[in-house]
Simulated assay, not measured.
Amino acid sequence: MTTQLPTALAEIVEDFQALGERDRLQLLLEFSQGLPALPERLTDHPELLEQVVECQSPLFLTIEGQGRGAEARIDLFFQAPPEAPTTRGFAGVLREGLNGLSAAEILAVPDDMPELLGLTRAVSPLRMRGMTAMLGRIKRKVGAYVAQTSAAVPS
């Protein structure tokens, strides 16, 4: 099942699957602690971030692309409060697994990828829905970037 995933994300999923439920939660906490802060250019412009309202804790994200169309490299940025370790952990997993990939690679990630982490019994369904929504929002923003940069005509 992880063969459909980009290499970094597949390795993260395999790490989660190799652990028991309690250890999976610990690994999620480690991802939350590793989520980098927003760069100053985004901290000063919150209007550039989009809230994922499905998340139980306030989570905001945005993407930046380098290049055009499906081959563009995508960088992901997240903002979530330190007191929201589950939400931050999910964001950390997605950032570490997807950041720097091409738009095409990100768009090819299966929508049910969060379920592959094996957290459905350890984390509430509402929190799982939040992670699925994060991935969906990222894919929507990446798709919009691809459409915008593919349609643009160089001058």
Rank of each mutant, 00 (worst) to 15 (best):
R24F: 01
S155Y: 06
Q4C: 00
G65M: 11
R88T: 01
L76T: 15
L61K: 10
A133I: 06
E11G: 05
T62C: 08
V146A: 04
V93Y: 01
A91F: 09
G89E: 02
T43C: 03
G130K: 05
L38T: 13
A18G: 12
D44Y: 03
V153H: 01
G118Y: 02
T149G: 00
E11I: 00
V52A: 08
R22V: 11
P85M: 04
E50G: 00
G92H: 07
G143H: 04
M131R: 02
E96D: 10
G67H: 09
G34W: 02
P125T: 00
H45G: 14
Q33R: 15
T2A: 05
M1Q: 04
L107W: 02
T62P: 05
E21A: 11
Q79H: 13
A72K: 11
A133L: 07
E11C: 04
E50F: 01
L25I: 12
P82W: 12
Q33M: 11
P58S: 14
E50D: 00
G20K: 12
R88N: 11
A133N: 11
Q56E: 14
A37I: 08
I74W: 01
L49E: 07
T86D: 02
D15M: 15
E64P: 03
E105S: 06
A133T: 15
E71D: 15
Q4G: 01
P6T: 03
A152S: 13
R129W: 01
T2P: 00
E96K: 11
V109M: 15
E11M: 03
I106T: 09
V153K: 03
Q79D: 12
D23P: 00
L101I: 08
V93P: 13
I138P: 02
E50V: 12
D44R: 11
S102Q: 09
Q148M: 12
C55P: 10
E11K: 13
R68D: 13
I12W: 06
T3W: 05
L59T: 14
A103M: 01
P110W: 04
I12Q: 06
A18N: 14
P58G: 14
Q56F: 01
Q4F: 10
I138R: 10
H45F: 14
L107H: 00
E54K: 14
Q66F: 05
P110M: 08
R22N: 07
T120D: 06
D112Q: 10
E40G: 10
P81C: 05
A80D: 11
V123L: 06
P82T: 07
P58A: 13
I12F: 01
T62L: 02
E83Q: 14
E11F: 02
I138L: 09
L35K: 09
P58D: 14
M113E: 13
V123D: 01
E30N: 10
P6M: 02
L107N: 05
A70Y: 03
T62F: 06
A18D: 06
R41A: 13
A122D: 01
L135H: 12
R88H: 02
N99R: 04
A10L: 07
M113F: 08
L126K: 15
C55G: 09
C55F: 06
D44P: 03
V13G: 04
T87Y: 03
L35R: 13
G92N: 13
A151G: 13
F16D: 03
R95T: 07
Q51W: 04
V93Q: 09
V53M: 08
M113K: 02
A151M: 05
D112Y: 08
F90W: 13
E50Y: 02
T86W: 00
M1H: 05
Q17A: 05
L28V: 04
L28N: 07
R121Y: 08
